[in-house]
C-alpha cells in the first residue's frame, strides 16, 4: 500500500468509528461465538440427546433419560452431594483461614511487610496447580512428611492419604489465595473511622468485627467464595490424585463418560449440575454485591 492509499484508509476508518470498532471486535467475537459459546450451547443441547447402545453413536432426538438417570440412580446423587458438600466445606475453611490473615495484612502489617506478603500470596497462586496437588499426595502418604512429623512428636500416625479428608485439605490449600486476595482488598477499603466509631461506642473487638467489619467485607468474602466453590465443583484432578475409593466427584464421572465410555450426552447432563449451581450462586452473589468486589 502506498502512502496516499494508506492515508485514505486511515482517514476513512477515522471517520467511521463503528467500522473501527467492528474490525477490532470481529476477531475476538468470531473466536468466542464460533468456538466457545457455540460449543457451550452444543454441550447443553447434547445433554438432551442419547447414545445408541449398539452403535455407540449419538442419537439426535430429544429425551430426558440422562436427567432421569441422574435423579434415580442413588450413586449419582451421592456423588453430586459429596461434590457440593466438599466444595462448601472448602469454602468455609478458606474463609476462616483467610479473614484473620487478610486483616493482619491489610491493617496491622507495615508497608514493606504488606508488599512481601502480597508476593508471597501470589507465588502459590501462580505455581502449577498439578504440582501442588502432587506435593500433598507425597506429604499425606503413609510414609510422608506428616506421619514422620507426628512420629517425631510422639503422636503416632494417621492414615488420611487418599481420603475425603485429604481432598478437603488439598482443595482448601489450593484455592486459599483466591479467597485471601478479595478479602484483603475488601478489608483495605473499610474506612478506619468506622471501626474507631464502633470502638468509641463501646464495642469490643469481637463485637466490632461481627457488627461492623463483617457486613462491610461480606462482598469480598462472597467474591472469594465464587472461586473456591466453583473451582472445587468442577475438579477431577485432586480427587484422582489424593482421593480414595469413596471420593468420586462429578468431574471424575464426566471425565470417564467422555474419555472412556464415550457417552457425551450423559456427561453433558451431569456437567449441567455444577453449571446450574454456579448460575444460582452467581445470581445470589450479585444481589449481595459480590461483583463490585471482584
Amino acid at each position: 500500500m502506498n502512502g496516499a492509499a494508506r492515508t485514505r484508509v486511515s482517514a476513512a476508518l477515522f471517520r467511521r468509528p463503528w467500522l473501527r470498532a467492528g474490525l477490532l471486535l470481529s476477531g475476538p467475537t468470531a473466536w468466542f461465538v464460533l468456538i466457545y459459546l457455540g460449543a457451550l450451547f452444543l454441550l447443553f443441547l447434547s445433554a438432551f440427546w442419547s447414545v445408541d447402545s449398539f452403535s455407540g453413536k449419538i442419537v439426535h432426538s430429544w429425551t430426558l433419560t440422562n436427567f432421569e438417570t441422574l435423579f434415580k440412580v442413588s450413586a449419582y446423587r451421592t456423588i453430586a452431594l459429596r461434590t457440593i458438600g466438599i466444595a462448601a466445606a472448602v469454602t468455609v475453611t478458606d474463609i476462616v483461614l483467610a479473614v484473620p490473615f487478610a486483616f493482619f495484612a491489610a491493617r496491622i502489617a507495615s508497608r514493606r511487610l504488606q508488599a512481601a506478603l502480597f508476593v508471597a500470596v501470589l507465588i502459590p497462586l501462580w505455581s502449577s496447580y498439578l504440582v501442588r496437588v502432587f506435593a500433598w499426595r507425597l506429604i499425606l502418604a503413609k510414609e510422608g512428611v506428616l506421619n514422620w512429623f507426628l512420629g517425631q512428636v510422639g503422636l503416632g500416625s494417621v492414615n488420611i492419604g487418599y481420603s475425603n479428608w485429604a481432598m478437603w485439605i488439598v482443595f482448601s490449600y489450593i484455592w486459599l489465595p483466591f479467597m485471601i486476595l478479595p478479602v484483603w482488598a475488601a478489608i483495605e477499603r473499610v474506612p478506619e473511622s468506622l471501626i474507631e466509631a464502633s470502638a468509641d461506642l463501646g464495642a469490643r473487638g469481637w463485637r466490632s468485627f461481627r457488627s461492623v467489619l463483617l457486613p462491610l467485607i461480606l462482598p469480598g468474602i462472597l467474591a472469594g467464595s465464587i472461586f473456591t466453590f466453583s473451582l472445587t465443583l468442577g475438579d477431577f484432578i485432586t480427587p484422582t490424585l489424593v482421593g480414595g475409593a469413596g471420593s468420586t466427584f462429578i468431574g471424575n464421572v464426566v471425565y470417564q463418560e467422555v474419555g472412556i465410555s464415550n457417552n457425551v450426552p450423559f456427561a453433558a447432563a451431569f456437567a449441567t449440575v455444577p453449571l446450574v449451581i454456579m448460575g444460582i450462586y452467581l445470581l445470589v452473589a450479585r444481589r449481595l454485591g459480590a461483583f463490585e468486589a471482584l
Binding site: F103, F104, I108, L117, S127, A135, W136, I139, G205
Partner: peptide, 29 residues
C-alpha cells in the same frame, strides 16, 4: 478496636505466619 491490643496483634501475626507456612511448606517439600 480490633487488633489494637498488643496481644491481639501478636495473635494476628502468629496466624499470618502459620498461613505463610501452610502456603509454602508443600512447595518447598
Amino acid at each position: 478496636m480490633i487488633g489494637s491490643g498488643r496481644w491481639s496483634r501478636i495473635a494476628f501475626a502468629v496466624w499470618a505466619a502459620l498461613i505463610m507456612l501452610f502456603l509454602f511448606f508443600p512447595i518447598v517439600i
